[in-house]
Design a protein around this nucleic acid. Structure first.
Lengths: 221, 221
DNA sequence: TTACTAACGAACCAGTTCGTACATTAGCCA
DNA sequence: TGGCTAATGTACGAACTGGTTCGTTAGTAA
């Protein structure tokens, strides 16, 4: 997981709080994503680190807080990606498509994140509620969407009253479902939504869908 | 759970295999949906029925098979609803909207079903794979979509090459996400996707989105 | 060099959890 | 009406699980 193997004295302890914490988080992310919150085993997480279960309780307090920490880190990754997005130079249609594709790409590249979010929803977001960090910060993507929508509306390209949060939900829904429900969908309908050779197809479909919605002639209904 | 209280001799047994099985399934559905597969407790399920844990093993074999049976019944309910859908008399646009609304309504009315499907995806659809019934049967919705799309294409209303399975995924994604991810979405963005007074808004949004996609002028891209 | 503390490890514990062995009875059929 | 079997209930146990207790050591500041 974490870079290269240190010289690591044959069987002496190495003291590195940061590394130990990070290693626990890495393994915990995998284990929670693999087995769900209840299914994840604290002993198993400990066994797969270079440290012991004692350290999990030492650094995180318990299983619940460990899961919260895992969620916090997972969300910070996508927030980071959204923050680095630069669409100021694009026209509204291209900008929205770009943003949608960023979400698409991130969801596809981080299936563990998707699983963690699914698991957190089963538990009714109680860990997010318990997290000071996660409750406080919003989403950079929302700010981006708000700016693009404003520009698009001014230029008359977009239908007037589309809400940024709703649009974000629409984009997330498509990207999330494709990854989160790929197993049941595949088993029931015989189609692999994340098959590599279908990737471009669905990526385009998402953009087409969002743009079609934003530019549709609502009066036609 | 199940209708009225029987006369039920004060403390004598009542023999009714069908009722006992159905009651176990009812309670198991709730318990699995509430706590996830691993989080669900067989003892808890038994305690909330009028029978005992022994009967769960007698009728279903074990926790795994019980969950599979729960899934089978949950899927059969939506299949039933889709089968009763009659859109032959509607024009393609109205027909698609009707179908999308049926999915929307069913997902909203059956949050337990959504949770079960989320849980099954965490477990990579292994129970669906283990179920003879679930693997065999397709989805009535797909047949409906195929017919509507064909009509819509003939009349020139819809863009040529839209696949029925993809369209089903698009509709499901929106409906599923709204219910499945309402907790994390609400906690992070402060918006309740299933707030009753927003219901019509999202129901309309879904239809608009799908129709806009189907009728969009693809050449414009 | 010494002394102090953050970081660490091994063993253990109390409470669960799925599953089963064994005993019992209701209801039907000959 | 007697007997047979499907249906049911009780009690238990082996394995596991989150969390803790107690003791040890690496690194560092004085």
């Amino acid at each position: 997981m974490t870079s290269v193997e240190e010289p690591a004295r044959p069987n002496g302890r190495i003291r590195d709080a940061a590394r130990t914490k990070a290693e626990i988080l890495d393994v915990a992310t995998q284990e929670f994503a693999r087995a769900g919150y209840t299914g994840a085993r604290v002993d198993e997480i400990a066994a797969r680190t270079r440290t012991t279960k004692r350290m999990i309780y030492y650094y995180f307090g318990g299983k619940e807080q460990l899961f919260t920490a895992v969620l916090e880190r997972a969300y910070s990754v996508i927030r980071q990606a959204e923050q680095e997005l630069d669409v100021e130079h694009l026209d509204p249609v291209a900008a929205i498509r770009r943003l949608a594709e960023l979400t698409f790409d991130h969801h596809e590249a981080h299936p563990d994140f998707i699983r963690l979010v699914s698991i957190e929803n089963i538990h009714e977001a109680e860990h997010i509620a318990a997290s000071e960090e996660l409750g406080r910060i919003g989403s950079p993507a929302l700010d981006v969407i708000r700016r693009i929508l404003a520009t698009g509306r001014e230029s008359g390209l977009f239908t007037a009253d589309v809400d940024a949060v709703d649009l974000h939900a629409m984009i997330s829904a498509f990207c999330f479902f494709r990854v989160a429900n790929r197993h049941t969908f595949g088993a029931l309908f015989g189609r692999d939504l994340v098959a590599p050779d279908q990737r471009e197809h669905y990526r385009t479909m998402l953009g087409d869908m969002v743009i079609a919605y934003l530019t549709a002639d609502r009066a036609a209904d």
